[in-house]
Design a protein around this nucleic acid. Structure first.
Lengths: 185, 185
DNA sequence: GACACCATATATCAAACTGATACTATACAT
DNA sequence: ATGTATAGTATCAGTTTGATATATGGTGTC
């Protein structure tokens, strides 16, 4: 289940261009699977080469040709095979938590800023989820609703945890501060 | 804050070899920042080249030389600068959630298996957190405890969400099953 | 005794992904 | 007039992933 497969899955919902898929990645998929043009265009080219998708060039005036992709029967079979994998991964890459590991090497104000910014970003995601539930919830497969609910549950848990333990972490950082300063200067 | 920086941070805790660092990545850091030899060794080489770490070759019998790395004063400054970044990222790459988006294209038993396996993996993490709290909690900086608590909070939220909504998702999949079959066969 | 597997330890490689940038054109706002 | 947004495709250097190679000794098991 790489970018190729996710593109294939998105195309089960109807034809789309690379640009269209990018928007899907930014909106609904963004919080658990992101991809940029640098992955999407090569992915579509590779899928087309293997006949998992077909490609139609639609000329446009003043803009590059729009390349419209459609999933083929062979592509559907490929997707089924990918979905049959019993242990899909779920990985986190968190510079935030890595930073927190070294909180004792930071200035308390720096730490507070990082924690506040993290909460702000979580709230942005929560608004995104609200909007999704208000507008797309009915028109979309049930699985999408599941992922949005999961995203919300996880974000809320993170926010609550920061609000419950963030101040304590900052205080502990303040306590060891004199040591750090003597080392640094 | 890439693998290089995290290695640098780990080295503030004392000298280590690439192999040692890999074990750190597997144990305490594993749930939010993973790295394999393919990233660690080039990272250390790059850090050494820039004099952020020093390297001492310790010959051993019957084994390859052990290369022991230590952070330098220049490395500490570099780390401080990295930690000062106010918006460290927190990204999820979830083949699991991507799979869930296409739940309506799956067999209900497949879906059930995926959900069960996810819960099993979460429980493995929870055991890892228990063990960490029982053994390493006192000897480790406060920030580590924060990340473990956060990890636990997030994992628990995921598990609860699956337990609360998983069956419903499977049922919804069963409902549309006849449609899917007629397309597939 | 043989065979498998794990720990120690480094290293490399193809494939994949990231994030930025380039190019073109319209439109709307400052 | 300048900046930003939308619509579109595309490439590229740097990074990361996951597997594999190499070498040896210990431990477990049939």
């Amino acid at each position: 289940m790489d970018v190729k497969t996710v593109c294939l899955g998105m195309l089960t919902d109807g034809e789309a261009s690379g640009y269209d898929l990018k928007k899907h990645f930014e909106s609904s998929f963004g919080h658990f699977f992101s991809a940029g043009y640098g992955s999407i265009y090569p992915a579509l080219a590779s899928l087309a080469e293997k006949n998992f998708v077909s490609c139609e060039c639609v000329p446009q005036e003043g803009k590059p040709d729009r390349k419209v992709y459609r999933i083929t029967e062979k592509g559907r079979e490929k997707l089924q095979a990918e979905l049959a994998k019993p242990n899909p991964s779920h990985r986190v890459r968190s510079e935030f938590l890595a930073t927190m590991c070294f909180a004792h090497l930071m200035e308390p104000e720096q730490l507070r800023t990082v924690l506040e910014n993290r909460i702000a970003e979580i709230e942005t995601y929560e608004e995104m989820f609200d909007e999704f539930e208000a507008t797309c919830m009915k028109s979309t497969p049930h699985g999408m609703g599941f992922t949005v609910g999961m995203g919300r549950a996880v974000m809320t848990a993170m926010k609550n945890y920061i609000e419950a333990h963030g101040d304590q972490l900052i205080e502990q950082t303040e306590v060891v501060e004199p040591l750090r300063k003597s080392v640094a200067s």
